[in-house]
C-alpha cells in the first residue's frame, strides 16, 4: 500500500469510529485477518458445488469461537442456528487458510435434532472460520469470525 492509500485507509477508520462511537468488530479493519476467498472457494465448490458469492450473511447463524486460539490445533467451535429444526438441512464449517478448507459437515436427519453443533477444529494459521447453514429451501446462510493463531508475544 502506498502512503496516500494508507492515509486514506486510516482516515476511513477514524470516520467509522466517530459514527459508531464504540469499539467495532474486526470489520472496522476492512476484512477479517487472513481472509483467503480463493482457497475457501475450492472447499465450497467441493462440498456444496457453490461459491462464496452464493452465501448470504445471516443473523440466524451464531458462530462462537475464540478470537485468539489457545492452540491452533484444537479450537473450540460452536454453531447454533436460530431457525426451526425442520427448516435446516445441513451445517458446514470452513476455514479460509486450511489446505482442506472444509472442517466438518453435519446433516440434520430430522426427528427433532436441534440445529446445533459444537466440536474442536484445527485452524492452520490466522484466518476466518465460516459457519454455513444449508436450509431446506436451498439457501446458504453464513456467519464468519476471525480466529488468530499467534506465535505469542508476552503478557
Amino acid at each position: 500500500m502506498n502512503r496516500r492509500k494508507f492515509l486514506k485507509a486510516s482516515a476511513g477508520t477514524l470516520a467509522a469510529s466517530l459514527v459508531v462511537g464504540r469499539v467495532g468488530s474486526a470489520l472496522a479493519q476492512g476484512g477479517l485477518e487472513g481472509e483467503d476467498i480463493a482457497n475457501l472457494e475450492k472447499g465450497l465448490q467441493a462440498a456444496l458445488g457453490k461459491g462464496f458469492k452464493d452465501l448470504v450473511p445471516s443473523k440466524d447463524v451464531k458462530l462462537t469461537a475464540p478470537t485468539i486460539a489457545e492452540s491452533g490445533a484444537n479450537v473450540p467451535v460452536e454453531i447454533e442456528v436460530g431457525l426451526p429444526a425442520d427448516q435446516v438441512k445441513a451445517i458446514y464449517c470452513f476455514c479460509d487458510k486450511n489446505a482442506n478448507p472444509l472442517l466438518f459437515s453435519f446433516q440434520l436427519l430430522g426427528g427433532g435434532v436441534l440445529p446445533y453443533y459444537a466440536t474442536r477444529v484445527r485452524v492452520a494459521e490466522t484466518a476466518p472460520v465460516r459457519a454455513v447453514v444449508e436450509t431446506k429451501d436451498g439457501k446458504l446462510l453464513l456467519a464468519s469470525q476471525g480466529v488468530r493463531v499467534t506465535v505469542g508475544g508476552c503478557g
Binding site: T13, A26, T67
Partner: peptide, 10 residues
C-alpha cells in the same frame, strides 16, 4: 489490533 478482542495483551 483496533479490536481489543484480538489483542493478546503485551
Amino acid at each position: 489490533n483496533p479490536d481489543p478482542f484480538y489483542q493478546q495483551g503485551g
